[in-house]
Design a protein around this nucleic acid. Sequence first.
DNA 1: GTTCTCGGCCG
DNA 2: CGGCCGAGAAC
Length: 266
Amino acid sequence: MVMEKKRMDCPSLPPGWKKEEVIRKSGLSAGKSDVYYYSPKGKKFRSKPQLSRYLGNTVDLGCFDFRTGKMTMPSKMQKNKQRLRNESLTINKGKPDLNTALPIRQTASIFKQPVTKVVNHPNNKVKTDLQRATEQPRQLFWEKRLKGLRASDSTEEVLRTMELPKGLTSLGPDTSDETLLSAISSALHMSSSPITGQMTSAAEKNPAIWLNTSQPLCKAFIVTDQDIREQELKVVQARRCLEDALMVDRLARASESSRDSEDKAA
DNA sequence: GTTCTCGGCCG
DNA sequence: CGGCCGAGAAC
């Protein structure tokens, strides 16, 4: 009866990948454990280099922890403000972490999952209909599938949801605010053209037919000068908060290090 | 032959 | 100390 040989579904890997942890049960290294991964096809991987070799240059495993199977974030945001003092001494030599690198989306998966569109396969007849070829098929009302997903910070604590301005009205089979937020934020991230909402009134009456799929599931809206001014104010306030937080942090570290030097002197 | 397992090297 | 991989044991 050896229960530790379970192949676990791995949350931060694409579907089908499994992770297994095997505890050594005899010998000098008894108690130590080995970690293996299994590709969807069942191929076994027993080290990070092996995984890299298999995946090629398409993937950067730099911040992937093989043992835990999780991505370790580059900026070590710590939730616990009250670290022990000597701990902070050994880990961080006192300088504020003013990491100005742009935040990079660390998706759940370590793998890029490219979609390859074969346009000219020997056995295919090349379609002359270019119109169709330029547009990727997309599921209608796909935004619904985002329902229930919540943003969380690096400690996996769920973040408070965002409040949308009044005047934005959802449209479609699911008119919850949650889906509205997903739809709009997705549109803002994925489209380089202006987001206007559904401009035709026909789309409001029968979205299944008249939906403009390049716009979010949202009725047309108008952004007023006042909306813009209010948003600018919010940004200014957020910047002040950040400024204050950085200053507080700097002062805290300064007093921490001065206390340390007093300790040394004593 | 393949798979499992632990030793041991090396950074 | 732990990641990685060789190689003997087990199947």
